[in-house]
Every structure is written in structure tokens, then in C-alpha cells.
């Protein structure tokens, strides 16, 4: 399918960090207001770094690939650094997304932010 870049398809086929973390330090869930999809990101934090990060996504190939991409980018990052990851960074990491699918990359960035907020609120 030519809709997506090879990189998107590669992440879609072999998503990284897919799954749940049982005793996560922070969890962020966001719904996509555009199409009604859902994404959850789980994190564990050690010394202010993202020690582990996992995701679950109910959505299109772009949503799955952006989830995978953002977990790969954020893993090991300082929280402050991770909070600066924008949807454009994710899209760029994936060699671009079709314009109609940009809204899906919001999900990933937002879910990560929410997970970090959740972690902080628990401290």
C-alpha cells in the first residue's frame, strides 16, 4: 500500500514495546476525538528517566506505528526531554505521515505526556 512510508509499515508490522506494564509508575490513556480511537502508554521511571515504556493501541496503522515509534524514541530519556517530543518529531521519525493521518500522531505524544503527568502526580 502506498499510503504509508516503508518505515510506518515496518513499525506497524513489528511494533516495538507493545504490551502492558503491570506495576507501571505512570499510565496515560487518550482517545482520538477525530475517529474515536484509543491509546494507552505505560511507563516506569528510575532516577527521573524512562526506564521502561510500553503501549497498547486500538487504531489505524498510523496510530500503531506512531505508538511504536514514540516508545522507541522516549525509552531511556529524561522526563523533561521526553515531554518535548512533539507529534512532528514522531512523524519525522517515521519518514512522514499522510496529512489525513497527522491527527493519529497527536495521540502518541499526548498519551506519553499524560503518563508522565500521572507519574508526577503520584510522587
Amino acid at each position: 500500500m502506498s499510503l504509508y512510508s516503508e518505515k510506518v509499515m515496518e513499525h506497524f508490522r513489528n511494533p516495538r514495546n507493545m504490551g502492558e506494564i503491570e506495576d507501571a509508575d505512570g499510565v496515560g490513556t487518550v482517545g482520538n476525538p477525530v475517529c474515536g480511537d484509543l491509546m494507552t502508554i505505560y511507563i516506569t521511571v528510575k532516577d527521573d528517566r524512562l526506564e521502561d515504556i510500553k503501549f497498547k493501541t486500538f487504531g489505524c496503522a498510523a496510530a500503531i506505528a506512531t505508538s511504536s515509534m514514540i516508545t522507541e524514541m522516549a525509552k531511556g530519556m529524561q522526563l523533561e526531554e521526553a515531554l518535548r517530543i512533539s507529534r512532528d518529531d514522531v512523524a519525522q521519525g517515521l519518514e512522514g505521515l499522510p496529512p489525513i493521518k497527522m491527527h493519529c500522531s497527536n495521540l502518541a505524544a499526548e498519551a506519553l505526556h499524560k503518563a508522565i503527568e500521572d507519574y508526577r502526580s503520584r510522587q
Partner: peptide, 30 residues
């Protein structure tokens, strides 16, 4: 239940099967 049609469609396409879906994600108007 619990899966999205476009992902399903693309997964099938990768295995050579051409199908279609009524999912919002796959429509031009979302």
C-alpha cells in the same frame, strides 16, 4: 471486537488479500 479495520485491511493486504472496511480510520472523511 476491539480491533480497527484499517489495521486489519493492511495486515491482510500484506498477506496478499484485498478487502475493504467501514472503519472511520480508513475513510476520507474519518
Amino acid at each position: 471486537t476491539a480491533i480497527e479495520g484499517e489495521s486489519l485491511l493492511l495486515s491482510l493486504d500484506e498477506k496478499g488479500v484485498a478487502a475493504s472496511t467501514g472503519s472511520a480510520c480508513s475513510s476520507k472523511k474519518l
